[in-house]
Every structure is written in C-alpha cells, then in structure tokens.
C-alpha cells in the first residue's frame, strides 16, 4: 500500500509538470488553431535560464526566496523569448495556411534544440540545488518535499492563470479571440496584443515547468524539452485541445499512467503507452475527454 501511495505521488508530481506545459499548447491552439511545437524548447530554455541566472546571482545556498527569484526571472526571460519567437516566426505567417505555420513551429523547435547545443554545449549540466529536499513519511510512504513543492506550485500557477483568464480584461479578450478571431477583431480587440499576451502566459508557464522539473531531476541538456514537450502535447489532446481544465486533467493522467507503467509493468512500454493513448483518443474521441464538439460551419 505504501508503495502504491508513493507511486501516486511520483505520478502526480510528474503529471503536474506535464499539465503546466500542456496549458501552453492548449492556449496557443485555442487562439491560433495550430500546435506550437517549439513549446517544449521554451521549457528547456526555462531550465537553462534558471541555471545561468543562478550562476549570475552567485546562488549557492538553497533558500525559498532565492528559488522564487530565479523562478520569476526565468519566467520573465522565457516570456520575452516566447513573444520574440511569435513576432519573428509566426506573425508574418498570420494569413498563411495552418500547415505552413505548423511546419515553421517544427523548424523553430529544431533551431532552438541545435542552437542550444552550440551555445550551452551538448553535455548535460547539473542544475543547482535550489531547494533542499526533506523526506517525510505519510502512511508509510516516503514523500520528498520537492515533490510537494512541484505539486503545490503547479496548483498555484494554474489558479493564477485561471484568475487572469476569467477575471481580467485581457483574459476576457483572450476568450473572445479564441471564440472567434474575426468577430473579436471587429469588436475592436487588438488581436496582435492578445496573441502576444497568450505567448507570454504560455511561455512563462513552460519556464516554470522547466525550473520545477529541474528541481526534481537536476540534470539539464539542450534536448531535454523533446519528450516532456511531446508528452504534454499528448496530455493536451487527451484532455481536449483548447480546453484549460482538460490540459490539467490530461497532464495528471499521463503522469500517473507513465509512473504506473514503469513501476508495475516495464519501463520499455512507457513511451509506447503514452503514444498509444494519443492514437486511441484521436480515433475514439478526437475532441478529448473534456473537449466540446464543434460544428464546422462551411
């Protein structure tokens, strides 16, 4: 039983990170109707900016305040990078076909991976200890404080996002644009600002995910974004792409399924099962678990 509880915590702390990345996919899809495949690389850049900011600040003692400062700075850095990518790579293609933008996104993703290898070096780097891990026992299961930190921070960030989207003016604009881009622009909403802000939100969440991931798994390299990025994409599709609660649910489900596959079945099947879920959901319920069916108007 204690083993089971521990696996659940392992799965949730992994799933919470997938959920944070998946939110970025879902937001961009909701507005621009394309999958931003470079999103996993923003996650990687989040981890690396955390690494370099910590070094720049001369960070060596683990402290909560230090960790928060690094988290904030790295989220800001990645928000800027995200907006820059949008302005340079996606904005000129606003009127092009969705396929063109999709392929551009893959190009941006590869560009960041390999430029990262050139700039940061291809060998893995050890991420600084932002927070010291303390173990405590709950019902016989050993739970690390860092796992709790990941889960709690994810919940805080997700609620923050929810508040922004539901309660603020720009949030209302985001929802309006995702409902109907043309109509929203006719109502006087500045589409470009809304899109930029969406990238700010998505990229800073990805950066936060990168930092949280590196706190738990402190080895970072320029290709680290590929698999978590794909898993988060699966999570977004599983929950229903374009749907916020769906992305969170999808992330947690994928995290749990992965952990149970590895713990009780075999690690060989971990990625296979994740991708099998993608195929099955696309065949059986393409709108995802929480997605609404949309009528295509011709």
């Amino acid at each position: 039983m204690s083993e089971f509880i521990q696996q659940v915590i392992n799965g949730l702390s992994l799933g919470a990170i997938y959920a944070l990345i998946a939110l970025g996919y879902t937001m961009v899809y909701g507005i621009l109707k394309f999958i931003n495949f470079a999103h996993g690389e923003i996650f990687m850049l989040g981890a690396f900016s955390g690494f370099y900011i910590a070094r720049l600040l001369g960070f060596n003692e683990s402290s909560i305040i230090g960790a928060l400062i690094i988290l904030m700075l790295s989220m800001t850095t990645c928000a800027l990078i995200g907006v820059t990518i949008e302005k340079l790579a996606y904005k000129p293609l606003r009127s092009a076909s969705k396929l063109t933008v999709l392929i551009t996104a893959i190009g941006v993703s590869l560009f960041l991976q390999y430029t990262g290898q050139l700039v940061f070096g291809a060998d893995p780097k050890s991420f600084p200890t932002l927070l010291t891990n303390v173990n405590f026992k709950i019902a016989g299961a050993n739970i690390g404080s860092n796992q709790i930190v990941v889960i709690v921070s994810s919940i805080v960030l997700m609620f923050g996002l929810r508040e922004i989207v539901m309660r603020t003016k720009i949030g209302t604009a985001i929802r309006a644009v995702s409902n109907n881009l043309t109509a929203a622009s006719l109502m006087g909403i500045n589409i470009n600002n809304v899109i930029s802000f969406t990238f700010v939100l998505g990229s800073s969440l990805a950066a936060a995910a990168g930092i949280l991931y590196s706190i738990n798994y402190p080895s970072i390299d320029p290709l680290m974004g590929i698999l978590p990025g794909l898993k988060a994409f699966i999570a977004a599709v599983l929950g229903g792409i374009g749907n916020f609660p769906g992305a969170v649910l999808g992330g947690l489900v994928i995290g749990l399924i992965e952990t149970f596959t590895v713990g009780y079945l075999s690690p060989t099947y971990r990625d296979a099962i994740a991708f099998a879920i993608l195929i099955i959901i696309l065949l059986v319920k393409p709108t995802g678990l929480l997605g609404k069916k949309e009528v295509e108007k011709v």
Partner: peptide, 20 residues
C-alpha cells in the same frame, strides 16, 4: 530487477518498486 533507458530523467517509479 528494474530497467531504465539512458537519458531518462525520472527514475522514481523504478526506485519505488525496488524500495518495496
């Protein structure tokens, strides 16, 4: 006996099974 693949970052599931 538990397995992993080089480059994995998350080993907690395997280690939890070992710990049991």
């Amino acid at each position: 006996e538990q397995k992993y693949s080089a480059g994995d970052k998350d080993f907690k599931a395997q280690l939890t099974s070992i710990k049991a």
